[in-house]
């Protein structure tokens, strides 16, 4: 799937490194964005060997990069939601051990406006007292753990008039002993009050979720079964 922006994406986001379009990198999303502020996406690169990093981006979004996922001790797959400005490819590039980006994609129809609309929170003051608050849960499967969590944050893109860029940038998922299981770098298009689904390798009953936003606000919390 080509778009007018693909060459730029390949050069800037994938660092010009070699790539292949690979249907084994699955990108699940609705055909059409019902809510341009929160399009659900699930990326699964677990059929590709030795994935060390996943980049997700939308070529035609004003800010194409959505997130970077480092599954340290986790399966190379995750779910999240993002803001879409117009119809666009959604691509996930998984870096395999041979140094090649394996790119999977899906086309998303959209009425648009998600990135330049103000967050719901920016219209109220209530969110401030809850900034960085985490809810979530863990589901133990055989030899793995599904972690789902949400963090209260407006995730303002800076593209809505008069509202500065204000978004979560880093997440770190650790065991109670401080061993990092997964890292996540998020960009402006990730939805307000972001929700993530991750599959961690060890079977654990609780993890710590920590991180910070671009203003230096830090949060840390323990999510359990």
């Amino acid at each position: 799937m080509r778009s007018v922006q693909w060459d730029t994406m390949q050069r800037q986001i994938l660092d010009g490194r070699p790539f292949v379009f690979d249907p084994r990198v699955k990108v699940l999303a609705p055909t059409s964005a019902e809510d341009s502020m929160a399009v659900p996406v699930f990326v699964d690169a677990s059929e590709v060997e030795g994935v060390s990093e996943i980049l997700v981006f939308a070529d035609l979004n004003p800010i194409p990069e959505i997130l970077r996922y480092i599954p340290v001790q986790a399966a190379p797959r995750l779910g999240f939601r993002f803001k879409v400005q117009q119809a666009t490819p959604i691509r996930a590039a998984a870096l395999s051990e041979d140094g090649v980006w394996h790119v999977g994609q899906v086309w998303l129809e959209a009425a648009g406006g998600g990135c330049t609309l103000p967050s719901l929170a920016s219209g109220s003051t209530d969110w401030e007292s809850h900034l960085g608050e985490v809810s979530g849960r863990i589901w133990r499967h055989d030899q793995s753990t599904r972690l789902r969590f949400v963090v209260v944050h407006p995730m303002d893109t800076g593209l809505a008039p008069g509202i500065p860029r204000f978004h979560l940038e880093e997440f770190d998922i650790r065991t109670d002993d401080g061993v990092t299981l997964a890292r996540l770098e998020t960009f402006e298009p990730v939805s307000e009050n972001p929700v993530f689904s991750l599959d961690l390798n060890p079977e654990v009953s609780a993890v710590r979720v920590g991180g910070r936003d671009n203003s230096g606000n830090r949060f840390d919390a323990r999510v359990s079964e």
Binding site: V134, S135, F149, V195
Partner: peptide
Amino acid sequence: YPALERAAFRPATEQVQ
């Protein structure tokens, strides 16, 4: 789904904000 998944979540503990 957003409301239904929230109902399945619980507030995290040991929160530092």
